[in-house]
């Protein structure tokens, strides 16, 4: 087990290097250091020498990937890419191009993101599974039919509509919660209610349908038929056998998204003015703050890989038949 994890972690390193190169290339194809300097120095009355000295101070005056003026290994190390990437692997994100400590910002902005993502995930899970079980119980009745119709309709509505509509109705017309904003501590609850409800409602369509399929697949397996033939009540069959066995795909599906919860939700956070990591990323893209973008991509990739490893591990924990090799 331990050896397996170590191997997976080592395997992650080339992937992270690849991700890093990709981000780096993509970003500098579109965005020269000169552009960045101008962006940060403002528009009015900017002189070329100010740009040069900004680049020098922020370490952007070196060549991007290959330094033909240096000698030996320095040809590759004395470049923007090497200098800026090296620290990343030590999780030292450094200063953003506007001079803020990225690590500190991430540690601050992580909590609002989690405060939305975690309730959405778990309440959503609860609602979806309950509803799916309900449908599975009433399968092949008109309840099943109309539920599926409802679910497909809910799936077909754009997530933007849920947000716009929810905000308009609940906050503007009914005056139930603040329209947008955030606060620290317990005071944050009233700002979270609406985004969480919208997140859950928006996910019901696809989520419940997926669980319904899982349950129905399970219900049609032989052991369930046997159990039913033994005279077990439908409820017992559903809860004792079907739910238990369907837990494996449910669990692994949850585990893989767990680490990514940190990344926040781009759209929801922007609409509700929540200072999480999602809006942090979007702002950085708009402001062309390369340091932040690179840090977030790196973090995202690390979390993604972490999710994959966790999934594998959770498989073995749930189902002892699966061996990690």
């Amino acid at each position: 087990m331990m050896a397996y994890i170590i191997r997976r972690v080592l395997y992650a390193i080339p992937i992270l290097i690849g991700v890093n190169i990709l981000t780096f290339v993509l970003f500098f194809v579109i965005n020269s250091p000169d552009d960045m300097a101008r962006m940060h120095l403002g528009v009015k009355r900017v002189t070329p020498e100010a740009i040069e000295s900004w680049k020098r101070e922020h370490g952007y005056d070196k060549p991007l990937l290959y330094n033909d003026r240096a000698a030996g290994a320095a040809r590759f190390t004395d470049t923007i890419f090497f200098q800026k990437s090296l620290k990343l692997f030590q999780f030292d994100f450094g200063l953003s191009d506007s001079g803020r400590d990225i690590g500190y910002d991430i540690s601050q902005r992580m909590w609002p993101s989690l405060a939305i993502a975690v309730p959405v995930l778990f309440i959503g899970l609860l609602v979806n599974i309950s509803y799916a079980l309900l449908i599975a119980f009433f399968r092949a009745t008109y309840i099943d039919f109309w539920s599926v119709v409802l679910l497909v309709m809910m799936m077909s509505i754009s997530s933007l509509f849920y947000i716009i509509g929810g905000q308009y109705l609940v906050s503007k017309v009914l005056h139930l919660v603040p329209i947008s904003g955030y606060d620290t501590g317990l005071a944050a609850i009233k700002f979270l209610i609406l985004p969480v409800i919208i997140g859950v409602v928006g996910g019901i369509g696809a989520g419940t349908r997926w669980y319904r399929t899982l349950f129905l697949e399970e219900i049609n397996k032989d052991y369930v038929r046997t159990a039913r033939a033994k005279g077990l009540s439908e409820r017992l069959v559903l809860f004792r056998h079907v739910l238990k066995n369907a837990l494996i795909p449910i669990l692994t599906g949850v585990v893989v998204v767990l680490p990514l919860l940190f990344m926040g939700s781009l759209i929801t956070e922007s609409f509700f003015g929540i200072p999480g990591l999602g809006s942090y990323t979007i702002d950085a893209i708009n402001r062309q703050d390369f340091a932040i973008v690179r840090a977030m991509v790196f973090l995202g990739s690390v979390l993604y890989i972490l999710g994959l490893i966790l999934t594998d591990i959770s498989y073995t924990l749930v189902d002892p038949r699966v061996r990690l090799s």
């Binding site: 947008s180 609850i189 009233k190």
Partner: peptide, 20 residues
């Protein structure tokens, strides 16, 4: 959720006040 709504609400009216 209801309890959360109520606690958020009863403590302070108007409910949609974004400030303490």
């Amino acid at each position: 959720v209801l309890v959360m709504l109520l606690t958020a609400g009863c403590l302070s009216k108007p409910w949609n006040n974004p400030y303490p």
